[in-house]
Design a protein around this nucleic acid. Sequence first.
DNA 1: GTCAACTTACTATCAAGTAAGTAAGTAACG
DNA 2: CGTTACTTACTTACTTGATAGTAAGTTGAC
Lengths: 214, 214
Amino acid sequence: MTGTTTGQRRQPRSRPETLARRRDILDAAVEIFGNKGFAGGTLQEIADQVGMTHAGILHHFGSKDQLLLEVLSHRDQTDVADLEEQHIPGGMALFRHLVRTAFVNAHRAGIVQAYVVLSAESVTDDHPGREFFQKRYETLRGEVARAFEVVCAEHGVAAPETIELASAAILAVMDGLQVQWLLDPDAVDLGRASEFAIEAIVDSVISTSPSPLA
Amino acid sequence: MTGTTTGQRRQPRSRPETLARRRDILDAAVEIFGNKGFAGGTLQEIADQVGMTHAGILHHFGSKDQLLLEVLSHRDQTDVADLEEQHIPGGMALFRHLVRTAFVNAHRAGIVQAYVVLSAESVTDDHPGREFFQKRYETLRGEVARAFEVVCAEHGVAAPETIELASAAILAVMDGLQVQWLLDPDAVDLGRASEFAIEAIVDSVISTSPSPLA
DNA sequence: GTCAACTTACTATCAAGTAAGTAAGTAACG
DNA sequence: CGTTACTTACTTACTTGATAGTAAGTTGAC
């Protein structure tokens, strides 16, 4: 009955050409939303970039909101997947991985900009990406916290409550540096500044040094 | 000849009522742009909030772009002025001031959100606020760097090149934590996490401890 | 021949900005 | 003191242009 290879029920939208087309659209959407924001970017611009009308994009994704959500989850799979599913580096290796990521990101302004713009925009009223970023940060903080627990155990430090603060801080400093770097790439060294800050925070967690501010 | 107090030429737009009205508009614009972004917020919404038509706002500010610029500089004067002009805390006092600011900001979600959204949005194409934020970060990094120089001198540490990295990192971590906090206020303690990270970074600059990642 | 992948054509809505008018205040002047 | 001349602070009404979404039709592959 099925006539093709799978023997399963025929899935409506799995032809390789179609999937490639959808990927093209998603890539274009990353670029446009990255350059203009979600509110500022239009379906028309995305359509132009893939040689299509804006109605064609709606045919594939139904609505602009839905397109954004698929952009976010697609990019996440393509891009940060190694942090979440595949081979999660544990312990100190995670921090090294984050530093490496910062250096790599310094050569991928487009994607960095998309994340910076969309994550900040997501805190606005009724933004369709809000839940995505909320969960994303929650997940990432959890990963970093687990790495801290491993590292603390290795160093014989009783896992302190500072792990939560430090986990948020590490992600924060990476994001914040991206903003400054995008605004003025010559003034900020994204890789080295991230490296410095991550090392400082990790140091601070594993050593119980007294604060100079207290 | 003049008849009034000044003896100068008559200044056109300095009536106290008018200035108050303009301030009302600026306050409303902070709220709307903070909640919706610059691209997402409309003059209509701002006008509604001050009981006016959108044309009335254009009468005062000329264009939406101009309104944003005045919002930014007005807020900066009102808000961060103490960091730039009035009594700049020097040395370690600056870092204490930054920590205090983070704790205060935890009770001012509206303004925090406006800065988060607008600063990130400013990296998009042709955004009218781009230059403002570029200069703002440049200025702030300079202030922090000066504080680091003072502190390093006090501690007998030769002012290292890490000062530049650390200055950017401190501002970055404050901004990045704001995003996470806005997305999930219960999951992130804005004040304490900022405090922790700032202390960690300051510690790291004044001590030349070896890196655990190296 | 049926279905997916589109296009064309259209609608409804909404945005910023402009133009012109009005009401109220202020200044100059006799 | 009061009329005239002008300015300021708006409103109403409009233009222009763009946008997301819809509906219906077309084409080509399997």
